[in-house]
Design a protein around this nucleic acid. Structure first.
Length: 580
RNA sequence: GCGCCUGUAGCUCAGAUGGAUAGAGCACCCGCCUUCUAAGCGGGCGGUCACUGGUUCGAAUCCAGUCAGGCGCACCA
């Protein structure tokens, strides 16, 4: 049980005794450390319900509160109950955490399967900075869910089937440079695609593209071979980026994977009466059980409310995005037995997912479907970055620049590091900085892309966190004999020690809350706080030069900090170097 | 037209179910390397939480309206 749960349990007991009945007893980490470690506003909430004075009620609760061996309590302000955890309680908790592989984190996801759909780039198009956000947030959520005990299936639903292939095949047949394809396949595919895209106002070219697409979709062997080749080289290129980012997928079930399920999906919707024909297309309309304002299949236009159907088969017989997504939901829920499906996809797709989830529910696909939306990365003009314009900063360039800047910083700050070691550290620091700049921010806010912002190495950044870990390792490197933290007695005397312990103990409280609203930035905030606490401790409390038993206690505290920090960063997908 | 997201210090951003004197980083100013890595630590400066009204003991947070920016709304994904 976490400290927070322990306090809530004891408070609940006191409330029952004081009020003669059970009552909700929320406890929170103190907003301000001057007020203690934890606080509860239960007295104020209850006094509001009962129209009584909060302070006497708080006193009554505190009189019934048994905090033996845990904390002290006092009443402050309008009726807050403030808890101060006993130093020996913190010491005992720290000692227990040192022996706990899970660092106090409960397995809240045990027995549940979650499919996480993230990154999902289109093949034969470059990944640019706009793709980085979903990739990094999705990967972090997958890591966190896995650590919390979920069975996680990370699925890269790549865009490997769709109208763009008409253009790519047309370009392949007319503009392809074989030598360039061998040298740099992705760049050549992109060049070819862009070249065709330039003629998209030419009806002749577009018709030709369309007919290539029809040939592909009807199984023409020649076009299928070109398609397969495009997929292969694109996947290889994407894999390089994912390797560099240390992002892993369990499956790459792209859109093409669901091809042979689309026709039957549409048939089922027709049979069940969820979809019907309109203007030649098969559409899902409103089920009319909801108020119009909440109905994703209705929309208000200039002339009033009108239908806003999801089209699952075009008048020409072709299938769409929504069709594939529905077939995908069926597969994930029926084949993978998913309890949850999380879509880490940008906020512009919000309406699509509302329609999709609504349609899936009517179809009888039971599962918790979540659209984990994230804000947009904007260009200098404050407009959304578009793939087609070709003006965007590529993802590879961002990573390259990040590592280059990190290498400069290493040369500047620690010239002893040379050669391969320096290069390896630059990679870890540079990539970490990029990831942390995404993860430390609220996921819904839009921002304008800026090199300095994404690649900052000073302040609240990955290097700050990595550096705190390096400082800890440095202590252990100086140790003559191996240290066994599991047997050390913990004594917390200095304020900096108590504060560090306070944060270490909170790891298991913070982690589960992250998935309540899918906010990795809460973890980013936590590790920053932990690193700050460690740096202060490092300045205030000498470790190696301390007398026993303080020395062993401090070493053990360092050991636990090192592991917690490393675990926290690992859940953010950020590596830590041994030195920097 | 309707809907969704956003608006907090000069800049970039945090602020959990409504709570105490709204917090970090960058920038700027002042201190700290004969002691475990100064990518650090300690301190200072900096705010009408876009605006107006409402709900209540209490609002950056909830509700209504206004303004500003971004995005979406039938055969692309």
């Amino acid at each position: 049980m976490t400290l927070l749960q322990e306090l809530e349990s004891r408070l609940a007991t006191a409330l029952t005794a004081a009020l003669g009945g059970p009552a909700h007893a929320p406890v929170a980490a103190a907003a301000d450390l001057r007020f203690g470690d934890y606080q509860s506003n239960a007295a104020m909430v209850l006094s509001k319900e009962r129209k009584t004075n909060p302070r006497p009620l708080a006193q009554q609760i505190v009189d019934h509160l048994d905090l033996t061996g845990l904390a002290t309590a006092d009443i402050a302000g309008p009726g807050f109950i403030n808890f101060r955890i006993l130093p020996e309680t913190y010491a005992a908790r720290v000692a227990a955490l040192i022996r706990d592989e899970r660092l106090g984190v409960p397995a809240t996801g045990a027995g549940k399967t979650v499919v996480i759909d993230f990154s999902a780039p289109n093949v034969a198009k470059p990944m640019h900075v706009g793709h980085i956000r979903g990739t990094i947030i999705g990967d972090s959520l997958a890591r966190i869910a896995r650590f919390l005990g979920y069975k996680v299936i990370a699925d890269n639903h790549i865009g490997d089937w769709g109208t763009q292939f008409g253009m790519i095949i047309y370009g392949w047949n007319h503009f392809l440079d074989e030598a360039a394809l061998t040298a740099n396949p992705i760049a050549e595919l992109v060049r070819v695609y862009r070249k065709v895209n330039l003629s998209k106002d030419d009806p002749g070219v577009m018709d030709a593209c369309k007919s290539e697409l029809v040939k592909l979709q009807s199984g023409d062997p020649e076009n299928l071979a070109i398609w397969q080749k495009c997929i292969d080289v694109s996947k290889a290129g994407l894999q390089k980026i994912y390797d560099r980012l240390n992002v892993k997928f369990d499956y790459w079930h792209g859109e093409s994977f669901y091809n042979d399920r689309l026709a039957s999906t549409v048939s089922e919707f027709l049979e069940k009466g969820i979809a019907r024909e309109s203007d030649g297309a098969i559409c899902i309309f409103s089920d009319e059980t909801k108020p119009k304002e909440d109905d994703p299949f209705m929309v208000h236009k200039e002339d009033g409310w009108t239908d806003n159907p999801a089209i699952i088969r075009k008048a020409d017989g072709g299938f769409l995005y929504a069709t594939t997504d529905l077939a995908t939901i069926q597969y994930r829920i029926d084949e993978w037995q998913a309890d949850h499906v999380w879509y880490v996809v940008g906020v512009p797709q919000q309406l699509h997912f509302r329609q999709l989830f609504d349609a899936a529910a009517r179809w009888g696909k039971l599962g918790d479907l979540q659209h984990i939306a994230f804000g947009s990365i904007l260009g200098d003009d404050r407009k959304l970055m578009k793939t087609r314009s070709g003006e965007n900063v590529g993802l590879i360039e961002v990573l390259g620049e990040a590592v280059e800047r990190a290498a400069k910083a290493i040369a500047d700050k620690n010239p002893d590091l040379q050669g391969d070691e320096a290069a390896r550290i630059a990679e870890i620091v540079g990539i970490g900085a990029v990831k942390f700049s995404e993860l430390s921010q609220g996921r819904l806010t839009d921002y304008v892309f800026s090199w300095d912002r994404m690649l900052a190495l000073q302040g609240d950044t990955a290097p700050y966190l990595q550096y705190s870990h390096v400082r800890i390792r440095s202590i252990f490197r100086k140790l003559e004999t191996p240290f066994d933290a599991t047997t050390a007695e913990i004594h917390l005397n200095e304020p900096a020690e108590v504060h560090l312990a306070r944060l270490l103990v909170r790891f298991g409280e913070v982690l589960p809350t992250i998935l309540e609203e899918f906010r990795p930035n809460l973890l980013a905030n936590y590790v920053l706080e932990l690193a700050r606490a460690f740096h202060s401790y490092f300045e205030a409390c000498p470790v190696l030069k301390a007398e026993e038993p303080t020395r062993s206690s401090r070493l053990a505290l360092c050991e636990l900090t090192s592991r917690t920090l490393k675990q926290g960063l690992d859940l953010l997908g950020i590596e830590v170097p041994e030195r920097m």
